[in-house]
Each structure stands twice: as structure tokens, then as C-alpha cells.
Design a protein around this nucleic acid. Structure first.
Lengths: 217, 217
DNA sequence: GGAAGTCAATCAATCGATTGATAGACGTAA
DNA sequence: TTACGTCTATCAATCGATTGATTGACTTCC
């Protein structure tokens, strides 16, 4: 028994029924230990959530930066960033969902700290979009709304993507890059660079995939 | 004291901290009544949630259908539907969020019933997109992914829109219609019909807006 | 022998829900 | 008008169950 197993069990429950609705006894049972033993690994239920969200956001920031550094122009950087965002979300749907939904369960201090990480990640998108707007590669009526729309539709992948569904991860990435390009009016001729799209590591906290509830992917 | 006030107080709490994290005594206090009195209006805490979600989804279905009937071609119908979706989400952000997030707190039976309503609403989008694809007005690599992306980015409006922010609701609607058109490769010349975009009624369950946490809109 | 891991038992606090009772509004028969 | 019955709205008190967390004892391993 190690802390990763505890985190995986926790993420699976938190993603399915929420942080507040999950008791520590239930967490213990899911991890195969007594609820008291859980406190040997994590300081408290709250600390466990902080660990999960913190590691998720830090991995997103690191991965996002790597994706950006793999390209030079805003157009190509956007493709890398979107593709990473989609890959990360598709690879770690449950962890990503917990990091998004359960921020509200944190204490004010912890929430502010996690919000700073979230802001840091979103700043990557803001930067690319601003640069592309400056060079004229992108064209949109409102950069902020475009950023929110592009990020949100990528985040939504967690709701329906399943590893062995109708579409491969690569296909989903390609399609979301294409949709983002369209939103930003990137010319068709510039589309789909032959640079390989980034993948995303599976987090230690990501539990084994749960069976699909929809028949979308 | 009537049931709408109870629902508003409940939605405000559920949206902020979640269904499971909100106690019935807290609900009572927020509504200005004793927790026992709450059971005079609603059968149980769970029934209260069912009412909230059910009324929200039914209003979305009704509003969505009205929006569709206000236009004839898939291109114009899509504009109406997107604009309604955005208007509804911006007008009822907290109720919409509860209806989205707290579906998991429902009993299996109730959840399936609510899921049917959700499916019914999403079918409106599927229908328009399929028709537009058939007539050649829309062009996309994958209709299903386009639908998910368009809906998701509209739903995200609940996270940042504020009534007296930088952008008016009409501006947000225009912009989201434009982005949806771009995703579906609708020619520029066909854009922005002069048909007035639909608004959305504020639900009885929607509490007064909470102060903005971001500085986006 | 001591450090690390584990758990049954237990803590005070809170949970959703119910009880029995009260106060007032309304209708109606005398 | 008075008196009685009925219905709605409300709450303090309380129910058994569960919550997050702690303790002390037991085992295991180096």
C-alpha cells in the first residue's frame, strides 16, 4: 500500500460522487485499508484533495510549457497547446474533473493557492493568443472569449472521451486543433503541421477508466 | 415564504458549495425558516434537488424549441439555438450549474429521468447539425465532436459571465454564434442574420447574482 | 528494540429526517 | 356574533445514523 493507491481510490470516488459525499471509511474501503490507516498517509481528507489538485495542475503547467516549446510561431504553438490540453484531459479525465469541480471544497487559503496554479496554466493560452493576434495569424472579435471557448471545449473532452472508443486520441487532437484554428480564423493552408502532437503522461492519481456511460466516442 | 424562495436559497448554496456539502439546517437558515419547515414544502433534500434540475432542464427544452421555430434554415436555426443556449446559461448560471454538476447526487431512478431530459435538449442540437450537414451549409470533420464542442463552450459562459461586465449579453450571443459558425465553416456572407436573437427568462429558482470572482467579463 | 504500518474502538459533532405541539386563518353551523 | 372544527404554516426538541478525526494497542520488518 502506498500513497498513489490511496490517491487513485480517492480520485475515483471524488470524480463519481464528489468530495463532500465521500466518507473517509469509504475511501479506506476503496483503497483496501482501515480509515485510520488513511491518516498515516495523508494528514486529512482535505490534505488529500489538495495533493490531488496540486499535482494535477502542476502537471498541466509543466506539460503545457513543454508543448509550447516544441513550436515557434503562435499558430504552431497553439496547435501544440490545444493538443496537449486535449491529451491531458483525455488521459486523466477523472483527476482533471476533480481538479475542476472540487476546488470549491478547499479552504480559502488552499483555494487561492490552487487558483494561482490554474491562472498560471491559463496564462499559457492567453500568451499564445495575444501573440498570434499581434502577428495577425489569428483573427477574432474578442480574444478573451475565444480563449475561454477554446479551453472550455477542450476540457469537455473529459466528459465523453473513452480510450477505445470510436475516435483515437490522435483523431480527437487533430479535430480540436482544427476547430480552434477555425475559431481563430487560421487559413486552411496553414493547418495541421506535420510536427507530432504532444501526448500526456497518465498521472499517478488517475484511476483505471470507468466504463462509458454515453455512446459518443 | 413560498417554495420559490426555498429553491433560490438552495440553488445559491448548491452552486457555491455543492449539494452534499449543504445541510438542511443551513438551507433553512438561508431561506429564513426552520429546517423542519423545509419538509413542509419539499418532501426531502433529494426531492428539492430533483425539482431544481427538472424545472431547469424543462425550461431549456421549451426555450430551445421556441428558438428553433423562429428560423427556417439550419444555418439560421443554429444561430437561434446557440444564442438561446448562451442566454439561458448567462441568465441562470447558478441553476444551470447545479443542473450540470449535481446530477450525480440523484438516485439512479431520478438520474435516468433527468438524463432523458438532458438528452432531449441535446437532440435539438444534433438535429440542426445533421440537417445543416445534409444541405451542405455546415462542413466539419466530425459532427458529434462539433456538437459537443459547441455546446460545451456555450455552457462555459456560466463560469464567467456577469450581467454588468465588459460585454453585454447580446455581444456574447453574437460572438458565440460567430464562433459556432466558424467551427462549422459557415461562409462569412451568411453570418449574423438580422433576426433578433432570443432571450431567456430568469427561472424562479435562480438566486440573485453573486459577485464576480474573475475579471473576465 | 525501535520504527513503520495497521486496525478496532471511540470521540464529539453533525447529518437528514421526524415528532408533537402551537399559532393563526378560514369556514360554517348554531 | 359566537363557538367549534379544519387546514396550513411553523418550530423546538429529538431520533438514529454517520461524519472526520484520534487514541492506544497490536503486528511486522529491519
Amino acid at each position: 500500500m502506498d500513497i498513489d493507491q490511496v490517491q487513485r481510490a480517492a480520485v475515483a470516488r471524488f470524480a463519481q460522487q464528489g468530495f463532500a459525499a465521500t466518507g473517509i471509511r469509504e475511501l479506506g474501503t476503496a483503497a483496501g485499508i482501515n480509515s485510520a490507516t488513511l491518516y498515516h498517509y495523508v494528514g486529512s481528507k482535505h490534505d488529500l484533495l489538495v495533493r490531488i489538485i496540486s499535482e494535477c495542475l502542476k502537471a498541466m503547467i509543466t506539460g503545457g510549457r513543454e508543448a509550447l516549446s516544441a513550436a515557434q510561431t503562435p499558430t504552431l504553438q497553439l496547435a501544440q497547446l490545444i493538443a496537449f490540453h486535449v491529451a491531458f484531459t483525455a488521459t486523466n479525465p477523472q483527476t482533471a474533473r476533480v481538479a475542476e469541480y472540487e476546488m470549491r471544497a478547499l479552504t480559502p487559503v488552499a483555494r487561492e493557492e490552487m487558483q494561482r496554479l490554474r491562472d498560471e496554466y491559463e496564462a499559457l493560452f492567453t500568451k499564445v493568443l495575444n501573440e498570434g493576434d499581434k502577428t495577425g495569424e489569428f483573427s477574432t472579435a474578442d480574444l478573451t472569449m475565444a480563449r475561454l471557448a477554446v479551453m472550455e471545449m477542450g476540457t469537455g473532452v473529459a466528459h465523453w472521451y473513452r480510450p477505445h472508443g470510436r475516435l483515437s486520441l490522435d483523431q480527437v487532437q487533430q479535430n480540436f486543433v482544427a476547430m480552434a484554428y477555425r475559431i481563430l480564423a487560421v487559413p486552411e493552408t496553414a493547418k495541421l503541421p506535420n510536427t507530432p502532437l504532444p501526448s500526456a503522461q497518465q498521472l499517478p492519481s488517475e484511476p483505471t477508466a470507468q466504463p462509458a456511460t454515453q455512446t459518443v466516442n
